[in-house]
Design a protein around this nucleic acid. Structure first.
Lengths: 118, 118
DNA sequence: AGAATATTTAACCATCTGGTTAAGTAATAG
DNA sequence: CTATTACTTAACCAGATGGTTAAATATTCT
């Protein structure tokens, strides 16, 4: 069993619970972006986006670097890894049927011969 | 790219953002439980737990069956699977960029062994 | 210096959240 | 029938959340 920081999981999951923030993260996955750029596709004011960014930042999901007046945001998925581990750890139990558990385990311990790209 | 139901992800992540609810889910992983049983380890009133259960139920993370006056809760991991996929999809971007970074660093000053776990 | 740009902070508002206590409903036990 | 048990609903409260507009700050452009 892995040990998780409750505080960190709270913040991470809460950050992911908002569609605007998930969209921002998705956007950031294709490269670093500044605030104005991130705000453009969203039908809301800049301060609203600014707040979302602060939430993501506090959750550790992105890092901010200032170049003059421009704030450049960079994705940091470390907290995501923690969250993914938490979900997977319990999902294995919950997946219900033994068949699906077996399928999961098979994916995990696949012999090295036919390596999938990814 | 996988398509996700935004509504469902909102509810799932929001449900997971509370430590009491995560604890309840973890508890339920070891078998179905009734409300009173689930409430016992938590320092809060029964109605409070009842509310948490409703949140989990609305998120589809558990199903309720009534046997007389007892409500028995059972885990349902379907929404978790969706959530896990979402997280993994984006986490891989990060992992990818980390690997690219590692590759770059390797050219610079070749580290002897595996990457540090951070 | 003055204007424009990038972004944050402040103040405000409505709604949601997580808890409480008190009362209500339904099933079981005596 | 009455009491107890299991659980929910209702009413309430404090604090968080997600949005707004207006003002402030800092940087760059002319």
């Amino acid at each position: 069993m892995v040990k998780y920081s409750s505080r960190s999981l709270n913040r991470t999951f809460a950050a992911l619970a908002d569609p605007t923030r998930r969209h921002i993260l998705a956007h950031l996955a294709s490269g670093d972006k500044c605030v104005t750029h991130l705000a453009r596709p969203h039908a809301m004011s800049l301060p609203a986006v600014s707040k979302h960014l602060r939430v993501l930042e506090k959750a550790g999901l992105l890092q901010r670097r200032r170049y003059g007046r421009v704030h450049e945001m960079q994705l940091d998925a470390k907290p995501l890894k923690q969250a993914a581990q938490w979900v997977e750890e319990y999902r294995k139990f919950w997946q219900g049927s033994l068949d699906r558990l077996a399928e999961y385990l098979e994916k995990e311990n696949r012999p090295p011969e036919k390596r999938k790209t990814r």
